[in-house]
Nucleic acid binder design. Structure first.
Length: 695
DNA sequence: TTAGGGTTAG
């Protein structure tokens, strides 16, 4: 090599080294300039090029770095430098950082002299990219080929055990580490602590943490995170105080772990500002997330805007908070922002957007995002398909749901759950049953969510016997009686007509949540047990729980069934004045039912006139039903015309009109209405009654 | 080594 060549190379090498620390122009561009200067790259040049590309690949979410990696690969191949083991491993690392695990696997397979370092790189690469099973299988392959694991191997693999909740396998790896003396390594210890916590073995995590003589900030963060993940928020905060008392300086991860451990967001935000940690982009992103989750979109948006480089995670946190409330206009604004920034959405962002498509008015937006997903390839992710399944089932488009489901290459339990709950939501409990049997045939074990959906399906079709079987399944399989499953179980017994069994389940719960109380109150209300419903309401208040909109729907239903107009009026007043709940159309329809059934037509009309929102067909229909009871034919006819103009396809209207004329003995008119019903194809909705004989 | 956005349930 001439002196000139050597000097020139040194110049380009220093340029490439800068790429590892600064965000400058493409490292491949520098490399091309080097070639144009007629300089011959050495293996060091390539090593620096790979490192520079790897360090700049994290920030971007575009295709460009992947294409650059392929170009580097070609240069290495052409120059023959790819033969060097350390260069191959460097390239493998680059692919792994870019998420191109298939290319990385190809490199390892083609490596004639692969060493532990290359195995480690791919194992940790699989793990970092969420391919936990692949990481595990590769580890087994490595050991079978006679390679001895190193501390780095375990550090790469152990997080996969945590994510898969493979506590047994994690313990085996812990054992391998102890035998080989690798468990003394602090990184291995921290990784194992985190693994035990993620597997729910908090005691295991605590033992490892206590054993550590020198606890680094990472160790403290791991244990704070461990408490947070297991719901012990007080312990997480206590440990943070202990860490500070021992003069260990907190870092960005400490703040993030505390935020996800439900610590007071404003206190932690202040701490982050005071300690200067708030300049960290990940911390700001976490803050955006917690503010967005609690509904403080204004603060979340301000924080998001304060980021020097907006990132997809932070934007997704905003999208998700808007989607939760169905504010699709804001969601679309966020999406437009991502386009402005040339940001490609990922599967999580897509799922968040789809979650917001709840209102039929936004079906077109949902379809457009489905198209976007197909175009960008995001629909391949089963996460996105699950999101689409849920979206289409919200609109009862069961054909689309089945087509998406049958096209899935892998069908994890969550996908079965999505389609089963989708069928139930779309009123197709029979299909849900069929899928449930298929799912079991494929060897999947239903979880609490499957069972809750199935219970809701049983409620829909009044299938008490199968509901009881599901109850037994819960008991046999020790499925934790979480609030939602208890509520679904009680709801099933009520809807299947067995209030006694619902009461038995309810009595077995120590601290029922509001949803469970609401289910019981509504259940009593619709079953005609007015006093029991109101006693339960009183008991709920005695326990310090704050009733919500659903509670009052149940309470009003009870008053309607008991025909107790005075109590109904009083509870409506309590709802609006004491609890500041603005009445929904359903509450208004209940009040109109109560008043008109009691014969208070003037009051009912006044009530409708004073409503804050426009009365819908349910409200007018409630008044019409009152007319049927009290033979108010004149008013009833007026309401019938009004309802016809609002929705002439409503079959219930003809039934009510027929009842109205019958109440006044106007049989000719009854016959006329029935003839119209026959001519237009019945009352528009067929009904079915079902009783189940029990032994 | 630790951490930030998401889906399925009432």
């Amino acid at each position: 090599m001439s002196l000139g060549n050597s000097f020139g190379l040194c110049f380009f090498h220093s340029l490439l080294s800068q790429h590892q620390t600064k965000a400058v122009k493409s490292s491949l561009l520098v490399f091309r300039q080097l070639l144009q200067s007629n300089l011959k790259p050495s293996d060091l040049t390539f090593s620096l090029l790979i490192k520079a590309s790897a360090s700049s690949s994290f920030a971007s979410n575009s295709l460009k770095p992947k294409l650059e990696a392929n170009q580097i690969h070609t240069h290495l191949f052409k120059s023959g430098i790819i033969q060097l083991a350390y260069i191959r491993t460097g390239l493998l690392n680059l692919y792994v950082n870019l998420g191109c695990v298939k290319n990385a696997r190809f490199l390892l397979d083609e490596m004639p002299d692969r060493d532990v370092v290359a195995w480690n790189a791919l194992i940790s690469g699989y793990s970092k990219n969420g391919h936990d099973f692949l990481a595990f299988n590769l580890f087994i392959e490595m050991v079978r080929e006679g390679f001895r694991p190193q501390a780095t191997t375990l550090v790469g693999l152990v997080p996969s055990c945590g994510r898969l909740e493979f506590v047994f396998q994690g313990k085996s790896i812990h054992g391998i580490g102890v035998k080989a003396g690798l468990d003394r390594d602090s990184k291995v210890k921290n990784a194992l602590t985190s693994m035990y916590a993620k597997c729910g073995d908090l005691e295991g995590a605590e033992i490892l943490f206590e054993e550590m003589v020198e606890k680094s900030v990472v160790s403290w963060n791991t244990m704070i995170g461990a408490y947070g993940q297991n719901g012990l928020y007080g312990e997480a905060m206590f440990l943070f105080k202990k860490m500070r008392a021992q003069a260990v300086e907190a870092n960005s991860v400490t703040v993030m772990s505390l935020l996800s451990a439900n610590a007071d967001r404003e206190t932690i935000h202040c701490f982050a500002i005071k300690s200067g940690i708030v300049n960290n982009a990940s911390v700001v992103t976490s803050l955006v997330s917690v503010y967005a989750k609690c509904g403080d979109s204004e603060s979340a948006e301000l924080l998001h805007k304060s980021l020097s480089h907006e990132n997809l995670v932070s934007l997704t946190a905003l999208i998700s908070s808007y989607a939760e409330t169905g504010n699709m206009n804001k969601v679309v604004v966020c999406f437009a922002r991502s386009r402005q920034l040339n940001m490609e959405l990922d599967a999580v962002a897509m799922v968040s957007i789809l979650h917001g498509v709840k209102n039929p008015a936004y079906i077109a937006i949902g379809l457009a995002f489905h198209g976007y997903g197909i175009k960008t390839g995001l629909c391949i992710h089963c996460l996105v398909t699950n999101g689409l399944i849920s979206m289409y089932s919200r609109f009862n488009d069961i054909e689309a749901v089945f087509s998406l489901f049958s096209g899935m290459q892998e069908k994890p339990l969550i996908s079965w759950n999505s389609i089963i709950s989708g069928c139930v939501q779309a009123g197709r409990a029979g299909d849900a049953m069929e899928l449930f049997f298929q799912m079991k045939m494929y060897g999947y074990v239903p979880d609490a969510i499957t069972i809750a959906s199935m219970l809701s399906g049983c409620s829909q079709i009044g299938y008490l016997q199968y509901g009881k079987k599901l109850h037994c399944f819960i008991l046999r399989n020790n499925i934790e009686m979480e609030d939602f499953i208890v509520t679904a179980l009680i709801d099933m017994y009520i809807k299947c007509g067995s209030i006694e069994l619902a009461e038995r389940v309810f009595r077995g719960i120590k601290e029922p949540c509001l949803a469970t109380w609401n289910t019981m109150i509504t259940g009593y209300g619709i079953s005609g047990f007015e006093n029991k419903a109101l006693n339960h309401y009183a008991e709920l208040r005695k326990r310090g729980l704050k009733p919500d909109k659903i509670t009052f729907l149940g309470v009003l239903a009870a008053c309607i069934h008991g025909g107790d107009v005075d109590k109904g009026r009083r509870y409506f007043q309590i709802m609006t004045e004491e609890f500041g709940i603005s009445p929904s159309l359903q509450h208004c329809a209940s009040m109109v039912t109560l008043l008109s059934r009691g014969g208070y037509f003037e009051e009912a009309l006044l009530f409708i006139r004073n409503m804050e929102c426009d009365p819908d067909s349910a409200v007018w229909g409630a008044l019409l039903d009152g007319c049927c009871i009290h033979q108010e034919v004149k008013l009833g006819e007026y309401l019938g015309k009004k309802l016809y103009l609002l929705d002439h396809t409503n079959g219930g209207l003809y039934v009510s009109m027929s009842n109205l004329y019958a109440s006044g003995g106007m049989w000719d008119d009854v016959a006329r209405v029935r003839q119209i019903m026959k001519d237009t194809g019945g009352d528009g909705s067929s009904g079915a009654s079902l009783i189940e004989l029990t032994s």
